[in-house]
Write a protein that binds this DNA or RNA. Structure first.
Length: 804
RNA sequence: GCCCAGAUGGCGGAACAGGUAGACGCACAGGACUUAAAAUCCUGAGGGUGCAAGCCCGUGCCAGUUCGAUUCUGGUUCUGGGCACCA
């Protein structure tokens, strides 16, 4: 028998699978159930495939191969999310056009994916930068605009002076640019927004209909951030103006001792004639504008603010006059940009009141407001609150809200932390936004038949420092005609963020070559929803929410068949460097999967990456551990020599085979790949102890191992004389009766401490167990001279003798 | 600060409807094969203490429930992730 030679074997079977298109997903196949397995398509960066990709893809790779063996028509597609900053920055540095960079990177990536033997359907590859793809990305935007979900608004945006680009909130967390870590500054700008907040409630409700890991549900709920409370109008004294606030604590209304508005609040402008310290206020507004988001949100800093002189608000319940402040701890972007401050029962208001020497009134008993704000809403009773004295927090809230609604000075209200999605970038390498500005007709979308708005092939794509897109400098691009009146008009020069293309790619996989629609309803009905989606935790609050929003919108349009796009979502843990640190070039701890493939083979890499540890936990890479998996595969390969034609039956091996089929099958479904592999190791170790094994038993082993190490298993299958590939071989089945051991080992305890064990046939009676247990010598030593109080027996497990 | 995970040998990790802690793999030690090494195969091993059978201690820490707790409950420390002046 030849030695195990992965290099030759793997090349041979990859050629076989890919040339015969073995992994082709068949549209409308009615003979088999469909299964749509989705992994997050990669960004084709210049460094190529990372071990993190291998781990992320291996889970559904194993599931897909198992599903095919179980008789499913599997759609396991791959594509490239290729627009974006890294490619553009690389192009700026090197002068090579992003189109060429992208094409080269995709080629390399494809080669690497095939070298790992992934069973993707390579006939359905999508590339977000392909004009036949982004035509539909633009089409969806057009539809959103037509349905009032895309709008232009002047706002302060996060601007990265280094990348020269406006960032979404989620790209500038902690006041740092997501891409380059530079400090983000505030800049006023006219930008495009998508009204994702309109879908907040549905995105929240939809979580009940999907099977995501609980921590993902929690993260999404947290991100959407729903709060139920009330709007309350406070009259401005001697004026018709009202100041509207949002509060979740309507019950504390009698404890309001001042009000605070955000620096950007309109009230200043509206009442500027009456404000006596306008210069001071304006000064404060200017300062607030200059602060970076990070400075402003920095919790530890002391609160600042200015009393607005000349105006007062009136508490609608108590009638008391109260001062109004302007302070940047109140955010314009949440609620109404104004709050009623209740220092007795809110920590932030408490700090502010202490600093400015303002009254602090107790309206809920139970705490000590001379020391700190009392914020427990579960306990405590309302006091000093005319209408609601003696009530619980909950009762008081209901009563106040009812009162507000009756008197039309407020109502029940819901707020979300999630904000509308800033949807444009001032960059070249993205989808042009299909909008035209006409002096006569205003803002118009490009007609459907004129899509796509093609990205011009230019050689200078450096951004300007004014925050304008490089496209603004391309005359041929900017100058166009109005889709309505035909006169001269200008194109929008901003492009879409990278999230746009990835928000609907799973739909395109169902019908990737369609040039009439983004995908046909018939095909979508056949394939959607995605049965199982695996990816990183880092995408749970961005990509996953955005793509769910897109899908909900398209559902409303009637062009996709399901509300929720993904039935199930799991996430892999990070692969850390051998030093236990996150892999990074600067730390020099990056492991290149291609090196592992060259040295040990793709089958070893695939097996090791799933054996390395708990799939969901971050786990350090271990070079020596790879060898162990290679040894395991070699052992399985060598077992081939033990196959005999004669009868080699033993009850033990039959038992073990059935148990292994059962447990490996279950473990794979639960993403417990590490224990699945360990059970295959146990089976092969046991087989190795025998002198001879049957072909039938060996086939079970290689079929179970096939999803992990398909090249070697295909080779062994061929060596067995089987003509059909393992791709569609049947997944082994087990007999529940035979998946049990006949003999069980029983532990014997005295007072809960292990004192011995014995073997007995399965399902022995309690009496048999007791008798056998009492006969054990060491047990007798521990009970002699004592009284037996109780004997606890658990069938097939344990006997515990309680003595005293 | 709030929310969510997690903490088990030298290392990665098993086992939890409460029932023999440490499966499987790595690393290590001894042995076989070899002139030798590598590779391979066999054996050993949580810690302590004994010549040994054995005994004692052990799943971050402190309590509790139980015949019995890595598993359940309360508290606590540390680590990782998410959110964060969100009214």
């Amino acid at each position: 028998m030849k030695e195990y030679n992965p290099r030759a074997i793997e090349k041979k079977w990859q050629d076989y699978w890919y040339s015969k298109k073995m992994f082709k997903a068949v549209d409308f196949d009615s003979t088999r159930k469909k299964y749509f397995a989705l992994i997050e398509f990669p960004y084709p960066s210049g460094v190529g495939m990372h071990v993190g990709h291998v781990r992320a893809y291996s889970s559904l790779e194993v599931i897909s191969r198992k599903r095919r063996m179980e008789g499913y028509n599997v759609l396991f597609p791959i594509g490239f999310d290729a627009f974006g900053l890294p490619t553009e920055n690389y192009a700026i540095q090197t002068g090579i056009h992003p189109r060429k960079v992208t094409d080269d990177n995709i080629k390399t990536f494809t080669k690497q994916l095939k070298a790992a033997g992934f069973s993707f359907d390579f006939d359905r590859v999508v590339d977000t930068t392909d004009e036949n793809y982004y035509k539909w990305t633009q089409w969806i935007f057009k539809k959103m605009y037509e349905h009032d979900l895309a709008y232009r608004d002047k706002t302060y945006v996060n601007f990265c002076p280094n990348c020269k680009v406006i960032l979404a909130n989620e790209e500038s967390q902690g006041g740092k640019c997501d891409r380059c870590d530079h400090d983000v500054v505030q800049m006023e700008k006219d930008v495009w927004f998508l009204k994702i907040t309109k879908y907040a409630e549905r995105l929240l409700k939809g979580l009940n209909d999907v099977n995501y890991l609980p921590r993902m549900i929690a993260e999404q709920e947290n991100w959407i951030g729903k709060s139920v409370g009330a709007h309350i109008d406070f009259k401005i004294k001697d004026s018709d103006e009202k100041l509207r606030v949002f509060t979740t604590r309507a019950d504390t209304i009698y404890g309001v001792t001042f009000m605070v508005i955000a620096p950007e609040h309109d009230l200043i402008n509206t009442l500027k004639d009456r404000i006596t310290n306008l210069d001071e206020i304006k000064d404060y507004q200017e300062q607030a504008k200059k602060k970076s988001e990070f400075e402003r949100l920095n919790l530890n800093k002391e609160k600042t603010g200015v009393l607005i002189k000349g105006i007062k608000a009136i508490n609608p319940l108590s009638g008391k006059e109260i001062p109004i402040f302007i302070a940047d701890y109140v955010l314009m972007g949440y609620g109404t940009g104004a709050i009623m401050a209740v220092p007795g029962h809110d920590e932030r208001d408490y700090d502010f009141a202490k600093k400015f020497g303002l009254d602090i009134i107790e309206v809920i008993s139970g705490g000590d407001i001379s020391k700190e704000a009392y914020t427990d809403i579960e306990n405590g009773t309302l006091v000093n609150s005319d209408l609601i004295n003696g009530l619980s927090v909950k009762e008081a809230q209901d009563k106040i809200i009812a009162y507000l609604e009756e008197n039309q000075i407020g109502e029940k209200a819901i707020n979300y932390k999630m904000q509308d999605w800033a949807f444009n970038r001032q960059r070249y390498w993205g989808e042009p936004i299909p909008i035209v500005y006409c002096d006569e007709c205003g803002v118009l979308t490009v007609n459907e038949e004129d899509l796509p708005v093609k990205l011009p092939y230019i050689s200078h794509f450096q951004p300007s420092s004014t925050g304008e897109s490089p496209l603004a400098n391309i005359k041929e691009f900017v100058e166009t005609t109005c889709p309505k009146c035909g006169k001269k008009a200008r194109r929008e020069t901003d492009t879409m963020p990278q999230w746009a293309g990835s928000s609907w790619y799973f739909l395109r996989y169902c019908d990737p070559h369609n040039d009439k629609e983004f995908a046909s309803m018939d095909k979508l009905k056949y394939w959607m929803p995605v049965d199982w989606y695996n990816g990183g935790m880092e995408h749970v609050t961005r990509h996953l929410i955005y793509s769910r929003f897109y899908n909900h919108f398209l559902y409303d349009l009637g062009v996709v068949p399901t509300k929720e796009p993904y039935l199930k979502r799991t996430a892999q843990g990070l692969i850390l460097g051998p030093d236990g640190e996150k892999m990074s070039k600067s730390k020099g701890n990056v492991v290149d999967p291609m090196t592992i493939i060259e040295e040990y083979g793709a089958d070893t890499l695939r097996t090791y990456i799933l054996f390395i540890g708990d799939y969901e936990q971050p786990t350090p890479w271990n070079d020596k551990g790879v060898k162990g998996c290679r040894r395991f595969l070699e052992r399985v390969y060598k077992l081939f020599e033990k196959i005999v034609n004669e009868d080699a039956y033993t009850p033990e091996i039959e038992n073990l085979i059935h148990i292994t089929i059962k447990e490996v099958s279950n473990d794979i479904e639960l993403t417990k790949f590490n224990t699945a592999i360990s059970k295959l190791m146990i089976l092969s170790n046991e087989m190795n102890k025998l002198d001879k094994i049957t072909k039938k038993d060996y086939e079970v082993l290689i079929k179970l191992l096939n999803p992990f190490a398909p090249h070697m298993c295909e080779e062994l299958n061929e060596m067995l004389g089987n003509e059909d590939s393992l791709v569609f071989a049947s997944w082994p089945e087990y007999d529940e009766e035979k998946a049990q051991f006949d003999q069980v080992e029983i532990a014997v305890q005295v007072n809960g401490k292990l004192r011995g064990t014995f073997k007995i046939h399965k399902d022995a009676s309690a009496k048999e167990l007791e008798e056998a247990a009492l006969e054990i010598e060491s047990v007798q030593n521990h009970i002699s001279g004592k009284t037996i109080r109780k004997i606890i027996t658990v069938p097939n497990r344990i006997v515990n003798i309680v003595v005293s």
